[in-house]
């Protein structure tokens, strides 16, 4: 019996940041429960991963030495079996792309309630209480779980990574993977082609979002970029629509950029976008919606219509 079980995530021989963030979330929660924190690591170089995960506040690490990279069928089976053995009150999983690919299946197999993409997980003495966002971050809801146990996924970046060494014990867990139930064949990875510009090299980025409405209006953005000697980047919808190539996409599934100045024009500031630009030195936002989350991280802002502000700005810079 344990209180919190965290499942780490890794790819191409490295643990991903979210693993260390989950340790912080898990330890906080375990403290509130006066309890223990277990961490599991599945596939890949489990021995060395376990060493890196032996962090302050981690009580035990379970290693499942099976295969190299993530396969959701293997993870689902291994985590379900581990859950039976460890019997945690809360199972904490990452709300990463791979988390999206196995966490709901684990909850289903275990018959447990599932709360996804939480930005805060707490124990109120009786049950799990989480905070999650709705409507792209415009609204926050406090969601409680009415059950004895729960599966909760945590948004990457929501917690600071744990980094103090600890002395966890490491136990090998002998998961019985039923190969007939492995219905997906993960063949490998491929890097998405880059495109003609490297937005990660730019000192100044003029970044355009769905607020631009129409492909033809992009001229306005390129004119502004020219006036600032800047490079044009974009949020996902502009790339999805095929108006700009994938190499210009900023965010979780695009590029991570750290320019001196990042102008977000008609971009709401969704978490997957912010993941790619929060490291910019100075962030400037132009958006009609004063509640847009982009203003939470902006240094300067104008709450107004981009079609009024941007032409004026071009003129003034000209």
């Amino acid at each position: 019996m344990s209180d919190v079980l965290v499942v780490a995530e890794h790819r191409q021989d490295s643990l991903r940041d979210v693993s260390f963030e989950l340790v912080t979330a898990g330890r906080n929660l375990a403290d509130e429960m006066d309890g223990t924190l277990d961490v599991a690591v599945i596939s890949g170089a489990v021995e060395s991963f376990a060493e890196a995960l032996s962090l302050d506040g981690v009580d035990r690490i379970h290693t499942v030495d099976y295969g190299d990279e993530f396969n959701h069928d293997v993870y689902t089976q291994a985590v379900t079996q581990l859950h039976d053995a460890v019997d945690p009150t809360v199972l904490l999983l990452p709300n990463s792309v791979n988390g999206l690919d196995y966490a709901p299946a684990v909850a289903t197999r275990l018959g447990l309630p599932y709360v996804s993409d939480t930005v805060d997980v707490e124990w109120d003495g009786e049950g799990v209480v989480t905070v999650r966002e709705q409507f792209g971050g415009k609204v926050e809801t406090v969601v409680g779980v009415d059950d004895d146990a729960a599966v909760v996924s945590v948004r990457p970046g929501a917690y600071a990574p744990a980094d103090t060494d600890g002395t966890a014990s490491v136990v090998a867990f002998d998961a019985e993977i039923e190969t007939d139930a492995v219905l997906t064949d993960v063949r490998g990875f491929e890097e998405v082609a880059g495109g003609d510009v490297d937005i990660t090299e730019a000192d100044v980025l003029v970044s355009v979002g769905r607020g631009i409405e129409d492909e033809e209006n992009l001229d306005l953005i390129f004119d502004l970029a020219e006036a600032l000697d800047a490079t044009v980047s974009a949020s996902r919808p502009v790339v999805d629509d095929g108006w700009l190539d994938k190499g210009r996409q900023v965010g979780q599934s695009g590029k991570v950029v750290t320019p001196d100045v990042y102008l977000a024009i008609g971009i709401s500031g969704a978490v997957q976008h912010v993941a790619g630009m929060k490291g910019a030195e100075t962030i400037v936002a132009v958006n009609t919606d004063p509640n847009a989350p982009i203003f939470d991280i902006a240094d300067y802002g104008v709450v107004d219509d981009l079609f009024d502000v941007v032409p004026e700005l071009i003129e003034q810079l000209g």
Partner: peptide
């Protein structure tokens, strides 16, 4: 499958 950071997983289902 579109993973993070411009990486894709090639998968047969």
């Amino acid at each position: 499958r579109e993973l993070e950071g411009g990486l894709e997983e090639v998968t047969d289902v």
